[in-house]
Design a protein around this nucleic acid. Structure first.
Lengths: 142, 142
DNA sequence: ATTTGTGCAAATCGTTTGCATCTGA
DNA sequence: TCAGATGCAAACGATTTGCACAAAT
């Protein structure tokens, strides 16, 4: 596990982020947090993150990848995007927004909230609370 | 397999529907088609349909359920709804429309197309064609 | 010292597939 | 007749879990 590229400040920032969410700052978690939150918004699958971790020389098992992703998810550090029956996508953008999904590239692109305007939306049926609205625009490479 | 409840007219209608889609009208397919298309729009999972088939006394295996659902899907007799990472939903409504998904009841409700108006939608990125727009409104029982 | 996380391998769950056997056209 | 369907069980891929060990507070 190569932490040389990380400045102490970066490490501290990640530590704080984890602690603030009630998670212990362990080595694997710090390393994965760095991959995930180190640069802009990202979409990963368990497999893509595992692959990435391997390349960077992290000896993390798939189980830890899954556990960590799920912990980050329940801690609110990640959101889940449900667009593909074959696998789960995790998004570092936890604000409300929508997605393009490129079916034959297995790739997601964020759509800022203000670029989709729902001018008419049905009321929730009696006895139910609104939990969220997901808009997925499916694309195919031309 | 109890076909007593089916009038010859109903059987013929289903036969035609299958044939029109290039599918042979076999016993299991006719029976499942009857369950699926017999009464209004429906949402099923492989498991729920299997269960239902069992109750009606059909000796169909899970494999046949899956194969049949997928054949109906590619034949355009069913559509797929992707809302739950845990299982696939099939919808007998093959026209464009949207969905309520009740997370803790594992249940779908159709939303007619005109009840959701997207007044602003981003352009597809260069080089990509629009394949579809899915709106899922997630609900929780109050 | 105690609690929480990790790794591994085995277990689980939904879904798909190979193959021998049936069956509809 | 014979291409196409079925059933079963085995295979599969993604995800979860049990448990012994390791590390964090």
């Amino acid at each position: 596990m190569n932490f040389d590229a990380l400045s102490p400040e970066q490490i501290d920032r990640l530590r704080d982020k984890l602690r603030a969410s009630g998670l212990r700052s362990t080595r694997p978690r710090l390393a994965l947090a760095h991959l995930l939150f180190g640069a802009g918004n990202r979409h990963v699958t368990a497999e893509s993150l595992h692959e990435e971790a391997r390349k960077v020389g992290l000896g993390v098992s798939q189980a830890t990848i899954y556990n960590t992703l799920n912990q980050f998810l329940s801690a609110g550090l990640l959101s889940e995007v449900i667009v593909d029956p074959a696998r789960s996508y995790f998004d570092t953008n936890v604000t409300e927004h929508h997605h393009f999904f490129i079916e034959n590239e297995t790739r997601l692109i964020d759509i800022p909230l203000n670029e989709v305007v729902l001018s008419t939306v049905p009321d929730a049926p009696e006895g139910y609370d609104l939990a969220g609205v997901d808009v997925v625009i499916r694309l195919d490479r031309r």
